[in-house]
Design a binder for these strands. Structure first.
Lengths: 255, 255
DNA sequence: TAGTGGTCTAGACCACCTG
DNA sequence: AGGTGGTCTAGACCACTAC
C-alpha cells in the first residue's frame, strides 16, 4: 500500500491532560512519519490545519514552532511550511563536524571502499541499534576526502530490515549525501544522533585508508543516528585523522 | 557605581524595522548583562514587564521564550521567571561532556595544580580571547578526577582585566564549579562555548598529571567560553584520557 | 491579487506556588 | 486568596511569494 493521502482529522479531546498543542504536534509528526507528507512537500496552510484540528491558529503555530526547532519542519514566508529534507547544507551544519584548523568547511568527497551483507557480530553495535547479535545487516566502509586529503574512515552498519535492496551500486551512484539516500530511497529521515568520542592509536585498517602510520593517535567517534521517536537506524564508527582537520562542536545554539 | 536598579522603560519605537519582541529581548538582555537583575533573581512578572515595555503579554512571552531557549532565563510556573545561574546541574549537562563508557555521569573532583599571573605568549590563545600577545592573564592547571581516576588535565587562561583579584586561594576555596565562581565573584556568566577537538600523543606534562605513559593517545579539546554578545572570557585546553571515559555529544536537542 | 507565514493584540481560563 | 507562568482563543495587520 502506497503512503496514504494526508488526513488531518480533528484532535481527539480525550487525550488525557495533554495540552492541545502537544496533541497537534503528535498528529503532525504521525503524518510525517507515515509518509503521508513526504520530505520536501508543503503542509496545508496554518489556517487549514488549525481548522482541521479544531484548534486556533495560535495553538497550531505553537506546535509547528517546536517541530521547526527540531529541524523537522521548515517555514518559508509567503510559500508555506515544508517537511525538512536532507540537503547538503543541513548535512554540513547538523551532522558533519570536521573542518580544517582555520575554519574552512566543505562537503567531503566520499569513496566506497567495501560493501557486504552479513550478520551482526559486534555486541556493542547490536545494542546501539537495538538488534540481537546475528541480525542481518549491511556493513560498508567509506573514505572521506577533504581538500584532497583522506581525513575520515567511516565504518557503517545498517539494519538490513530497514534498507531492503541496498547495494554497493546504489551507494556508489547516489547523487548526494548518505542521509539523502536514506531519506529518498528508503524513507528514513535521520533527525538526531548521539556521539561518543575517544582518542586511540590508529589500527592497521584505518591506517591504510588514511595513509597514516599504524599507532598514530586518531579520534574514534561512535555515532548512533536516530529517526522519529528516537529509533536507531545507523551505527557508525568514524576514525578521524586530526592532523590538519579538527572535530568542531558548539555548546548551545548560536543566537 | 554598584549595579543600577532595574529600569524597564518603554521600548523606543524608532528601532528600525526590528520586531517588537526582538527589541524587548534586547532590553531584557541589556538589563541582565548590566547586572541590574543578578543571576538567581526573579524578573518582574510578565504582566508588569509587558506594561513597562508598552507591549502585549503575548509579545513579551515571545521574547522570553527565546531567552529561555538560550538558557539565559528559566521559567518556574507559579513562581516567576529567573535569571539563570551556574548550578552544578547546568554545568554537568551543558558544559561537561565526559562520562564513563557505561554512561555514568558525575561532577568531577578538581585539584588546582598550579596558578600564576603572567603575560600571554601563545598566539592562538591570544586570538581566541581577542587579546594581543603580552596581555596580562591568569593561567592555571587543574586535574579532574572521576570515580577516583584522573581523567582530564585542564589548562585555563583568563584575561586579568576581567578577573581582578583572582588568586589561587579563591580558586581553591570556591564552593562549586569554576563557572559558578566566574559568575558569583566576577559577574561573568558563561552562556556558550566553542570547542575544537584533536587526538594527540600525550605530552610529558599531561602524562604526569594523568598518570599515563607519554605518547599515549589522548583527546585535546580547545574551548573558548563566551558570555553575552559572544565576548570570549576563557580559553581552555583540556587533555582527556579516554581509556575508561569518553567525550559525549548529542546532535540536536532531545525532544 | 490572493495566499502564505510573521508579528501583535487583548482578552480568557487553568495549574501551580506562596502566603 | 492572590500572584505567577501555561495554555488557548479570535481576531488584526504586515511582508513575502507566486501567478
Amino acid at each position: 500500500m502506497p503512503p496514504a493521502k494526508p488526513a488531518f482529522s480533528a484532535i481527539a479531546p480525550e487525550a488525557g491532560g495533554m495540552p492541545l498543542y502537544r496533541s497537534a504536534k503528535r498528529a503532525l509528526l504521525q503524518q510525517i512519519e507515515s509518509g503521508a507528507v513526504p520530505p520536501g512537500e508543503a503542509l496545508p496552510s496554518e489556517a487549514v490545519l488549525a481548522c482541521a484540528f479544531g484548534i486556533s491558529v495560535g495553538t497550531l503555530r505553537h506546535a509547528v514552532d517546536e517541530l521547526v526547532a527540531e529541524h523537522i519542519l521548515v517555514r518559508r514566508q509567503g510559500r508555506g511550511t515544508f517537511v525538512a529534507t536532507h540537503g547538503a547544507d543541513r548535512f554540513l551544519f547538523q551532522f558533519f563536524h570536521v573542518e580544517r584548523s582555520d575554519g574552512l568547511r566543505e562537503v567531503p568527497a566520499v569513496e566506497l571502499l567495501s560493501f557486504e551483507r552479513g550478520r551482526l557480530d559486534d555486541e556493542a553495535i547490536a545494542s546501539s541499534l537495538g538488534l540481537k547479535p546475528g541480525a542481518p545487516v549491511f556493513q560498508f566502509n567509506n573514505r572521506l576526502v577533504l581538500q584532497g586529503r583522506p581525513v575520515v574512515h567511516d565504518h557503517i552498519t545498517l539494519p538490513a530490515a530497514l534498507f531492503k535492496g541496498l547495494s554497493d551500486k546504489r551507494l556508489r551512484e547516489r547523487p548526494g549525501t548518505i542521509y539523502q539516500l536514506y531519506q529518498s530511497e528508503f524513507g528514513i529521515t535521520v533527525v538526531r544522533a548521539q556521539e561518543r568520542a575517544r582518542a586511540v592509536p590508529c589500527d592497521r585498517g584505518s591506517a591504510r585508508v588514511l595513509g597514516l602510520a599504524p599507532g598514530t593517535p586518531v579520534m574514534q567517534v561512535q555515532r548512533t543516528a536516530l529517526t522519529f521517536g528516537d529509533r536507531p537506524v545507523e551505527a557508525r564508527v568514524s576514525t578521524i585523522h586530526t592532523g590538519v582537520h579538527e572535530y568542531v562542536h558548539t555548546l548551545q545554539r548560536p543566537a
